[in-house]
Simulated scan of single mutants.
Amino acid sequence: MPRNTLIAGGVLVVLGVISYVASAFASVTALIPAFLGVVLVICGLIARKKPMLGVHVALVVALLGLVGTFMNVLKIGEVFAGTAERPLAVVVSAITFVLLLIYIALGVRSFVAARRWKKADAISQA
């Protein structure tokens, strides 16, 4: 998971920078995915030394990001209808939402696998 955390963070940083450039540097809020990404990269670096701490904190940050982008995701239909007030923000929020959702799913899968491995190891040692 530390590697997945670093990758997810890096992708979000790139997405944030691209959206900031695409918005003609109009709003710092276009960098929100990059801010989330930087926090995830820091958590990923921490996770290399202390995996449980780094990944748990990263998953909490990802969950907060998921909640924060949800309202714009609901407006994705407006982009296709051509009625969205800020279509770039809606699209970037939707991409961020999907990336964070995938990251959280991988994290949950990793936790379940670790628990199963721990349980199987305990049984084999008994």
Rank of each mutant, 00 (worst) to 15 (best):
M1N: 04
M1T: 03
R3S: 11
N4C: 01
N4E: 01
L6F: 00
I7C: 03
I7Q: 09
A8C: 05
A8Y: 00
A8I: 01
G9Y: 06
G9S: 08
G10L: 00
V11Y: 02
V13H: 14
V14G: 13
V14N: 15
V14T: 07
V17D: 11
I18M: 13
S19W: 07
Y20M: 07
Y20D: 06
Y20I: 05
Y20H: 11
V21Y: 14
V21C: 08
A22W: 06
S23Y: 13
S27T: 15
V28R: 15
V28C: 09
A30I: 12
A30E: 09
A30H: 13
L31A: 04
A34Q: 12
F35C: 06
G37Y: 04
V38N: 05
V39L: 06
L40M: 04
L40P: 00
L40F: 08
V41I: 02
C43D: 08
C43S: 08
G44L: 02
L45N: 13
R48A: 04
K49C: 08
K49I: 12
K49E: 15
K50L: 07
P51N: 12
L53C: 06
G54D: 05
V55A: 05
H56G: 03
L59R: 10
V60G: 00
V61I: 09
L63M: 13
L64S: 11
G65S: 01
G65N: 02
V67I: 11
G68H: 08
T69E: 12
F70G: 03
M71I: 12
M71Y: 12
V73I: 02
L74V: 05
K75L: 05
K75Q: 08
G77V: 01
G77M: 04
E78S: 01
E78A: 02
E78G: 00
A81Y: 12
G82N: 03
G82S: 01
G82Q: 06
G82R: 06
E85S: 15
P87I: 03
A89M: 11
A89C: 03
V91N: 04
V91S: 04
V92D: 02
S93M: 06
I95H: 04
T96Y: 07
F97K: 04
F97S: 03
V98I: 07
L99V: 10
L99I: 05
L100V: 01
I102Q: 06
I104R: 00
A105F: 02
A105S: 09
L106Y: 05
L106S: 07
G107P: 00
V108Q: 14
S110R: 10
F111I: 09
A113N: 03
R115H: 12
R116G: 02
W117G: 14
W117K: 15
K119W: 02
D121V: 08
I123S: 13
Q125G: 12
A126E: 12
